[in-house]
Amino acid sequence: METSRRKPRSDALRNRELLIAAAKDVLGKGGPEASLEAVARQAGVGIGTLYRNFPDREALFLAVFLRELEDLVTTADGLDQTDDPLGALRGWLHANVAIVETKRGMLGALSLVMSDDLKRPFAPLAAQINAAVARLLAAAVARGQIRDDVTADDVLQTMYALCYARAPGPEWRTQVLRLLDIFVDGLRR
């Protein structure tokens, strides 16, 4: 007998969104040891609601990371249509640093759960991000803003290397953004 799945209720969807937003904040600051009770409290729901949506800590971490990647794709889409593709690339890289900042706080737990099976959901988003950066680079090359030998992989690898090369601390974001700006300026013809 086949059972049809009901669409989630609007309050259930709202609770899930509240939990993801709260988890982004709480887990990003507290890392893998952050309290799930604090996530539920900040979302304004009970711990049972958290566990109904996310059966374990890893599922919650992955949902936050997936959402952040989706946000990066959304931000990148259409940026190549701007009059200033190099400025758009710089802005997108700055937005990406915010995600890496959150991921740094969650890195310990993510490393435990990022098996090949769990990486699969991220592959399409990673490909979309790479394609969006490639479009931005192509637009900047076409406008004569940057050199033509830079690839999307070059940009992404440099960004992540700069993010992970800096020691965590209160000035981390400022320092990484400064280094990224130097890098982007170095792409000019």
Rank of each mutant, 00 (worst) to 15 (best):
P8G: 02
R9Q: 09
S10T: 10
L13N: 00
R14C: 02
R16K: 14
E17Q: 15
L18K: 14
L19D: 01
I20L: 08
A21F: 03
D25M: 02
V26A: 06
A34H: 06
S35H: 01
L36N: 03
A38Q: 13
Q42Y: 01
G44D: 04
G44E: 03
V45K: 00
G48A: 12
G48S: 11
N53S: 13
F54N: 00
P55W: 02
R57I: 02
L60C: 05
L62V: 05
L62M: 14
V64A: 03
V64Y: 00
L69R: 11
V73E: 07
A76G: 15
L79T: 10
Q81L: 14
D84K: 05
P85C: 07
L86Y: 03
G87E: 08
A88S: 15
L93F: 05
N96P: 00
V100E: 13
V100S: 07
E101W: 10
K103W: 05
R104H: 13
G105F: 10
V113F: 03
V113W: 03
V113M: 13
M114W: 12
D116S: 13
K119V: 09
P121W: 04
A123K: 11
I129D: 05
V133Q: 09
L137K: 04
A139I: 08
A139S: 13
A139T: 07
A139Q: 08
A140V: 11
V141W: 04
V141T: 15
R143S: 09
Q145P: 02
Q145M: 09
I146S: 05
V150E: 04
T151Y: 05
A152D: 11
T158V: 14
L162G: 01
A165I: 02
R166F: 04
E171A: 15
Q175E: 15
L179Y: 13
V184R: 07
D185L: 06
